[in-house]
Amino acid sequence: MAEDDPLEPTGIDAGSGRATDHDQYLSVDDVPDIAPTAELSWRTRIIESIPAKRRALKYVVAITIAVLWIVPFIGLFMASIRPLSEIIGGWWHLEGMTVTFENYYRAWNYSTAPMGQALLNTFIVTIPAVLVVMLLGVMAAYPFARFEFPLKTTLFFLILLVMAAPPELIAMGNFNALREFGLFDTYMGLILIHIGWGLGWVVLFLRNYLLGIPEELEEAARIDGASRYQIFRTIILPLSTPALVSVAVIQFTWVWNAFFFPLVFMRSPELYLAPQVLPLMRGRVQVEWGLIAAGSIMTMAVPVLLFLFLERYYKRGMVAAVAD
């Protein structure tokens, strides 16, 4: 026989005594259910958890950036809960600190433009601007993702092109158009402007997400007897929930925080939105930092809460839309 004979047993199996070779194997019962935990002293554990130099350096850089990022926010928050006399010397002096909600109360009822009313106004503009964009966006994105129609690429390119235009430049045209239609200084006009500006990125975003839904699912539904509309409603919409939530959160934040559009298109002080009201709180004699800070925190709180609330879905939608 040749030396590399594959049929000749080699290694530990070779030779006689095959009848007793079960000594060489483990029974499946001997395999532990969980991996054994390493027995380590506290000392070694602490030593092991101290990062190496390179790693430590990375941590330092990361933590520094994080602190830089969050310091202004902390300052704003501190200013909002302390009386003006304490802020003047710098919010970082902690001795003798008094916590008060006076600023919030005053901002909410501020005479020229009460924050309470402004927040309500902002909701009135933001909610329709978000819902309509979601609905129209997904209805426009679906054909771009699935159907073949003439000028599809051209139209899609056009949508992208509009996104590249600077709002400040177009605002003049928008301004004239709204005056023509009698929608200047109305919420309807402002909502329409927001919808128009939002649709571009929403269609692009949702189209990318929809492309990731396997076509097989729709084919299966077609064979099962569903119409195009039924497929859209019972398969596509439910599966797009994460992406729609992402769109809602981003568009909400965008519309809510928008300063430029309300500034240009809203004139009557009683109709002012929250970001517009903030600069009015400066006061006459001296800058009322506490008031502005409290107003800013209240304005910010809404999108932040929304984001925290929907974070789980939002992340899923973002990952799927970007991954494809």
Binding site: P214, E219, A220, L239
Partner: peptide, 11 residues
Amino acid sequence: MVFQNYALYPH
């Protein structure tokens, strides 16, 4: 029809 990847509706 039965598809290779089953095409079950995940939701």
